[in-house]
Design a protein around this nucleic acid. Structure first.
Length: 401
DNA sequence: GTCAATTCACATGAAAGAGACCACGGTCTAGTG
DNA sequence: CTAGACCGTGGTCTCTTTCATGTGAATTGACGA
């Protein structure tokens, strides 16, 4: 066995890979030039430039679908800005916060705590009154005269979960008599989310707005080519591979991130199969794999109650047509809980869980009205084929039936 | 046949509770000089 | 006298429950042609 491992690792080391530098395909990679975003970067730069003269730049709201380069472009421009500010000795700082990261900045308390931490204050993960955290944050903020640019990525997540209280407080900082000033940059996938904002926050946050349109297939191709230059060894891409990747990604709203992931996974598959080139067939496989991994990942990280609900749907699904209703699922779920001696959740909760499954894309649940026979969700599974049996195993394992 | 009222089976919202975490400050205890 | 152990209090956060209210069209039943 030991011997076998040695051989394996040595073989792995010697094995030729199609990759030269895989990092170029990761979403965190920042290429030197950002394609097709000149317009937007220039706008951002225009808006932020006053910071160099010590003025407060307007607040900025950026939106566009996922994978349209919002984060990349803002980070890129602010980095350049900072570089110059540093050279000239201008007191300017950029704080980048991703509101979507669990346990990091997805509540008011955590957002402010995270900000304070960026300023060098140690804030416990919980236990303090929110007020107190604000106080500490302000104190850190005013320690010296400095202007801040605060980037709130995926800001819609924050607002959806915890309301706009935090934003309101942040926008008000400048009204108070403080030495430092803060400009907010809100980045969001969801265009509609501004409408649910408190009008005061809304007007203050979107003093300026920039829209990132989705890339079209040609642009994605160019982006892929740019990255592939760095990422792969010479001549490993067969003809049509990039085109196909781009076509896949463009099919659903020009998501460049997905295209890059697809290309990366295709490369990995090719490597695993000891193929020296990446062919079109690898892309198909990659797409399947991404999908499968995503589903399995989602399910395994879900708590047990969710497993029970999903298993109920699953076990009901094959011997019925296509439509299950909430009531039916709940009945099965209840008996399943009895059988496994698990505490039973209320129908209210199960209803929410089902709609979460819908959002995760595991299940298609549409609210329909059956007239006299009430209103319910029409539920059908979105998982099929070999993944289904795998999931069934995972679930059975988890709930021990 | 037409039309409004009724009715079903949940959906959807708001509020509040339970239990897990955690920090802080005060009190107690044991060890030290 | 002091450092550290050990509470009690008060805070956040997540998952749930409870209570209340909403809802869209099939069905029903009254009505008139």
């Amino acid at each position: 066995m030991e011997r076998g491992l040695d051989v394996f690792f040595e073989g792995f080391l010697r094995k030729e890979s199609v990759f030269f530098d895989k990092r170029a395909l990761q979403s965190s990679y920042a290429p030197e030039t950002i394609l097709y975003r000149e317009e937007q970067t220039k706008q951002i730069a225009n808006i932020l430039a006053p910071a160099l003269r010590g003025d407060k730049p307007s607040n900025l709201f950026i939106y566009g679908k996922t994978g349209t380069g919002k984060t990349l472009a803002t980070k890129h421009t602010t980095q350049k800005l900072i570089a110059i500010a540093e050279r000239e000795g201008i007191p300017l700082k950029v704080l980048y916060i991703n509101c979507k990261l669990k346990r990091s900045a997805d509540t008011e308390y955590r957002l402010i705590a995270q900000l304070a931490r960026e300023l060098g204050k140690a804030i416990p993960p919980t236990g303090l009154p929110t007020e107190e955290v604000y106080r500490l944050f302000f104190k850190a903020l005013n320690k010296q005269k400095q202007n801040y640019i605060l980037i709130l990525d995926e800001i819609d997540q924050l607002v959806n979960k915890t309301g706009d209280n935090a934003l309101y407080n942040l926008t008000r900082i400048n009204e108070e008599d403080t030495r430092s000033q803060i400009s907010l940059i809100g980045v969001s996938n969801d265009v509609m989310f501004v409408d649910n904002l408190d009008p005061r926050v809304k007007s203050s946050l979107s003093e300026e707005e920039i829209v990132f349109p989705p890339y079209n297939a040609m642009q994605i191709q160019a982006i892929l080519k740019q990255r592939a230059e760095v990422a792969f060894n010479k001549d490993v891409l067969e003809y049509g591979v990039i085109e196909k990747c781009a076509a896949y990604a463009a099919r659903d709203h020009g998501d460049a991130r997905r295209a890059l992931e697809l290309l990366r996974v295709a490369g990995e598959t090719a490597d695993r199969k000891n193929s020296k080139k990446i062919g079109i067939e690898h892309i198909d496989e990659a797409e399947e794999k991404i999908d499968r991994d995503r589903v399995i990942d989602i399910i395994t990280t879900q708590p047990k109650q969710y497993h029970l609900v999903l298993y109920s749907i699953l076990s009901l699904h094959p011997n019925r047509g296509n439509n299950l209703f909430t009531g039916e699922v709940y009945e099965i779920y209840k008996s399943l809980c009895n059988k496994t001696k698990t505490s039973t959740l209320t129908q209210r909760r199960v209803s929410d869980i089902i709609s979460e499954f819908d959002m995760l894309g595991l299940v298609n649940a549409k609210v329909i009205s059956k007239g006299r026979y009430g209103r319910t969700r029409d539920i059908s599974l979105e998982i099929n084929g070999d993944v289904l049996s795998k999931i069934k195993n995972i679930l059975e394992d988890s709930i021990r039936v």
